[in-house]
Amino acid sequence: MKQISNMRELLDRYWDGETTLEEERMLKVYFSDDDIPEEYRQEARWFRILQSEQAVKSPGARRVPMLSARKFGWYGMVAAAAALLLTAGVWWYTDLLKFTEPPVAARPLHPENDEQVKPPPSVADLAARPEEHQKIAKKPAQKTQKRPLPAVETNIQPALAEDTYADAEQALVEIKAALALVSSKINKSKQTLEKGLQEVDNVEILLKRSM
């Protein structure tokens, strides 16, 4: 056992709170021995208590949520991104199909009713025929709202039929190429993510073994 000169003086300084960390460590080492003089009985008891307190360990992680939370976070982000892309793709595709369908006005809406639907009068027409202008202006607004709109009126939007591509087939090919690119990117990200998660799992296994 390593002897410490002026032990009593050192212990007095310890109890007064005047020792350094180094001196306190030295005392702990000294009193970890079983063969301690009787005069230091109380101190020996105290330092053994400190030793046993230092040995107290956490019962161990009951769960490791920080790993699974992060894992599910990544999965969630990838799933959300994929869902968003899929939704955007579907929306884009269906929207394109809608505009590439033949114009509604070109098809007979009501075959049994052969009435020709007149296009709305232009401003020039109304200027040339002021009586018709007044007639339209006098129509009560409420009545106009109640009247069901004929389906053919959708044909009034010629601008909507115009898009980036004039040819629907070409647009479809372009969409497929874009989606294939996005898909390849997602697959690549997924592979990287899986590799990273595998690494985390390995570390988790090591940690569980070490506890």
Binding site: W15, D16, G17, Q42, W46
Partner: peptide, 12 residues
Amino acid sequence: LHRARKAIREKL
């Protein structure tokens, strides 16, 4: 720290 150690010593 001084007071804590003094108290512990007295109790011991």
